[in-house]
Design a protein around this nucleic acid. Structure first.
Lengths: 135, 135
DNA sequence: CCGTATCCAAAAGGATACTG
DNA sequence: CAGTATCCTTTTGGATACGG
C-alpha cells in the first residue's frame, strides 16, 4: 500500500460511475435517445410502416450501416417491429410498436421545441460569436 | 464526361444532405440535444445555479474537458448563463436562462418516459437476446 | 431487395499536466 | 477554483464489396 494514488483513484472513480449507470435506468435509455438517427427514424415511422429502402430515402444522409444498426437497436428495445415477407425479392417492413408509439409524443416535443425556438438559438449564437472575436 | 459515377454521386449526395440540414432548423437543435452531457447538465441545473466543480460532481463521470466543452456550447446557444465573480479564487456560476428553462419540460419528458418504460425495454432486450442465440 | 462484413478515416472523449 | 492545452486511445461511422 503506497503505489495507489492515480491508478487506483481512476479505477475507483470508474467503478463508481458504472455503478451509478447501472442503478439509474434513465441513463441507459438516455444513451439510446441521445442518438440522432434514433430520433430521425422514429419520426420517419410516425405515420405508418415503411420499407427498408424507403427509410433510407426518407432520412437522407444515413448510410446502410447506420440504418441497419439503428433499426436493430430499436427492434431490440421493443420500439420497432420488423416484418419479413418472404417474396422474391424479399420485402421487409418496419413499424412502431405500441411502446414505440408511446415514445412519439416525447420525440415530437423535442422537434416542436426546436421549431419554436430555433431563431432565439441562432440569435444567441451570433451574439456569442460576435463577442468572441470582437476588436 | 465519363469519369463521373461514384465520386460525383457521392458529392451530389453530400451536398443534397447538407442543403437539407441547412434548411431544416430542427436538425441543428437535434444534433445538440442528441448529446448525453447536454441532457444531464440541463437536469443538473434544473433546480438552481451551480458552480463549475459542483456540476462536475453532480453529473458524475464527466471529464473536465467535456464539462467545459458542453457548458460553452450551451452558453453559446443561449441556454445557460455564465457568471464570473472576480474574487480570489475566482468563482463561476452557471444557471439556466429563460430559454433554457423553457427546454426543461422537454428534457423532463424524456426522463419521465424512460423512468416509466425502462422495464418494458429491458424485457424486450432480454427476449431479443434470448432469441438471438437460442439452441 | 435487404442486408452483412471488412477496412479505414475522422471525430469524440479521457488522462495528464500546466496556467491565471 | 476554474479552466486550457496536449496527447493518445476508443468509438463512430462512411465506403466498398459481397451474400441470401
Amino acid at each position: 500500500m503506497g503505489t495507489r494514488t492515480a491508478a487506483e483513484r481512476r479505477e475507483e472513480s470508474r467503478r463508481a460511475y458504472d455503478a451509478y449507470l447501472a442503478e439509474c435506468p434513465a441513463r441507459q435509455l438516455l444513451d439510446r435517445l441521445s442518438d440522432k438517427w434514433v430520433t430521425l427514424l422514429l419520426n420517419a415511422l410516425a405515420d405508418g410502416p415503411r420499407r427498408y429502402a424507403e427509410l433510407g430515402r426518407r432520412v437522407a444522409g444515413v448510410s446502410q450501416k447506420m440504418l441497419t444498426q439503428t433499426l436493430r437497436g430499436l427492434e431490440r428495445d421493443g420500439l420497432v417491429a420488423r416484418t419479413v415477407t418472404p417474396s422474391v425479392p424479399v420485402r421487409v417492413d418496419y413499424a412502431l410498436t405500441p411502446l414505440g408509439v408511446s415514445l412519439l409524443p416525447v420525440v415530437r416535443a423535442v422537434k416542436d421545441w426546436a421549431d419554436g425556438h430555433i431563431e432565439e438559438v441562432v440569435s444567441a449564437r451570433e451574439a456569442y460569436d460576435a463577442g468572441a472575436d470582437a476588436f
